[in-house]
Design a protein around this nucleic acid. Structure first.
Lengths: 235, 235
DNA sequence: CGATGCGTTGATAACTTTCAAATTTAGTGG
DNA sequence: CCACTAAATTTGAAAGTTATCAACGCATCG
């Protein structure tokens, strides 16, 4: 089964620490944010990471929670046999780094150049200890992440077609763009996310295309043509 | 792939509500428990569920968190095509019901006759809002569950042998009994947990037995004979 | 004792991976 | 801007793994 993703021994230029922003100067309106996101904006710092650079490693202390501002992030784990499993893809607005109490069980990398809001976990839990609304929201947030991961489990017991169809629907759901998806990640990323090989992912996409369920104008761009067919597949 | 677990349309006798216990009358020493477990003992009620009865349904309000006192519990989800995916097995001391914010995404059933401590989620989050230690613990608890689920994902991308070996090691880890495991669940439960068929689970067990890695005196009893071989498999 | 549920075993089919090669795309330097 | 090289993606054929279908054994329970 060796997928053997060439381990990214790439540029690991140091991320740039951006000046801490005060309230009111955020690029997004903080008023529409949840208490936690609001707090993250107040207490956090924005960091910039170039494409393929590491945001945190599997063994690091995991004191931080992250919120994607721009770009795309992947979390992943390298298994003992060299395979790589991707834990998730995170798009702007998504929060990652929740998955562990003490240490990260995953590493995180920027798939594209990315800006990420970073805040100390302890700052959030302290806040939660003073404000039940924050506590409840923090709890709900991890609960949602938990459910997201459980949905992945449902994905992994399905066939290759179902997995790919579900992945496309999920990405379409999360992208604003309607039926056209601009994939920030490579086929290898998708394969390692779905537990398949790149060949199977590629073949499945072509088969979906020949079913007229999708269109693949370029490898990174996919248009959903027949959602009901995809929905039927993804069960 | 239709595993078609005969849906448990069994006895669904009403669970028995046990009298609420006051502090100090618990069967376990509460002193060694975490703040949350302590709170659960103070605020919760113990319920009894007969074998194969439902503890909560997928659609129910999910206002509660549960802690197994005796017996074994499974959480599961029935997919649209009839397949069943088991979310997890919970042994005495384990906490379940964390997985969702608003509604359960899973159902829960007692595998054996079980007693379960039940406490309102809102009571815990309220408590967390007053006590940072509780907030932090609650956060850590869901983080741990999150990691458990992520480990399941790593399991599901592996081969049948690896999955079964990992399952056995996990169960041995969680049972007090050392190398001998008394399985409370059926082959179908194991299959639906590992994303395999009962035939494959059965075949894999026999193959592991013929490798002298395990011994299967009775179908519900498994003895680990060669842990390093199992560890090698589970990667 | 026959019915029933659970687990095992066997043969075959379906699906996915593996290995290899062709093709396309992207990046670089002239 | 074009040519060239490296990387990513697609495609093909063969091998390996798991599911499916079917039958059998074994225990439990009326």
């Amino acid at each position: 089964m060796l997928t053997q993703t060439a381990v990214h021994s790439e540029v690991s230029r140091r991320p740039t620490l951006m000046p801490r922003r005060g309230p009111g100067s955020t690029p997004e309106a903080t008023s529409s944010l949840s208490p936690i996101e609001h707090a993250m904006h107040l207490m956090g710092a924005t960091m910039s990471y170039p494409r393929n650079s590491e945001i945190f490693g599997e063994d690091e202390a995991a004191d931080y929670i992250y919120r994607v501002v721009t770009g795309t992030v992947r979390t992943y784990k390298i298994l003992s046999d060299g395979r790589r499993q991707i834990g998730g893809f995170y798009l702007p607005g998504d929060i990652f780094g929740l998955e562990c109490a003490d240490e990260h069980s995953l590493s995180a990398e920027a798939i594209t150049d990315a800006r990420v809001l970073v805040v100390k976990k302890s700052a959030l839990t302290t806040l939660a200890g003073h404000d039940a609304a924050v506590a409840q929201h923090l709890f709900a947030l991890t609960g949602r992440e938990l459910r997201r991961v459980q949905d992945r489990i449902l994905l992994l017991i399905k066939s290759a077609q179902e997995r790919v169809a579900s992945f496309l629907l999920e990405m379409a759901e999360r992208s604003p763009s309607g039926n056209a998806i601009e994939l920030p990640m490579s086929r290898q990323d998708i394969a390692d996310y779905l537990g398949l090989t790149i060949e199977t992912v590629s073949r499945t996409l072509t088969s979906l295309e020949s079913c007229a369920a999708i269109e693949v104008p370029t490898s990174r761009r996919i248009v959903l043509r027949n959602r009901s067919a995809l929905n039927r597949l993804h069960g």
